[in-house]
């Protein structure tokens, strides 16, 4: 079961800062609902877990993320993630290409394209919900990411981008954004999906 996702989110902050933040895997993971990095293997490899809870069912994936490519000039990143859930009944894999687009001096966009595939019980039971779930996960991620970016110390927009290794966000954000929950909330997710579905159903009334 595969889904292709292409998303673009507006961010309130300079492109350079967003790019720096994007390269900090721990910070990025913290923005991802239900994701956690458990071990940094080396510069390009981390191990972590992702938990998705839907009502009584809880899927906990553990796996590895590899940074395949970092292109500082294009401010783009290529990640490959792969994992199995802890009961061994499901597998998941993701190829993610993300880059930061400049949109003026204090605004930019986060543009991502991902291919997510799941197998086993996750595909059997979750396959038909996958697009909608992934959509909502990414919405929450983008909101958390934007929030985190806003909370960063302001840098001069024309200052050259700091090198990743010495990036400022190495120190944790003073106040973790409240939306960065450790687990994807199933009820909130269902509500968001229901709202989106209603919107599709009655677009005219909302116009």
């Amino acid at each position: 079961m595969k889904v292709q996702l292409e998303k673009s989110f507006a961010l309130g902050g300079p492109a350079a800062a967003a790019w720096t933040l994007l390269q900090d895997l721990e910070a990025v993971a913290a923005c991802m609902p239900g994701a956690r990095i458990t071990e940094r293997v080396d510069d390009r490899h981390v191990k972590g877990t992702v938990t998705v809870k839907l009502g009584p069912a809880s899927l906990a994936f553990r796996g590895e993320v590899e940074v395949k490519d970092v292109d500082a000039a294009a401010r783009s990143l290529f990640l490959v993630g792969r994992g199995t859930d802890t009961t061994g009944t499901s597998g998941a894999a993701m190829d993610l290409r993300a880059h930061i687009e400049e949109a003026g001096t204090t605004a930019c966009r986060l543009v991502g394209a991902a291919e997510v595939s799941v197998s086993g019980k996750a595909a059997t039971f979750g396959g038909r919900l996958m697009s909608a779930v992934a959509d909502q996960v990414l919405q929450q991620f983008a909101a958390n990411f934007a929030e985190k970016l806003r909370s960063l110390p302001v840098q001069a927009p024309d200052e050259p981008a700091a090198r990743p290794a010495e990036a400022a966000p190495a120190e944790p954000a003073p106040n973790p954004p409240p939306a960065a929950k450790r687990e994807l909330n199933g009820l909130a997710l269902l509500w968001a999906m229901f709202r989106a579905w209603l919107h599709d159903l009655f677009p005219a009334r909302r116009a």
Binding site: M1, K2, S119, G120, A123, T124, F125, G127
Partner: peptide, 11 residues
């Protein structure tokens, strides 16, 4: 089945 051989209907 889906294209990867996942069952889509075994319950």
């Amino acid at each position: 089945f889906d294209e990867n051989g996942n069952h889509l209907g075994n319950s």
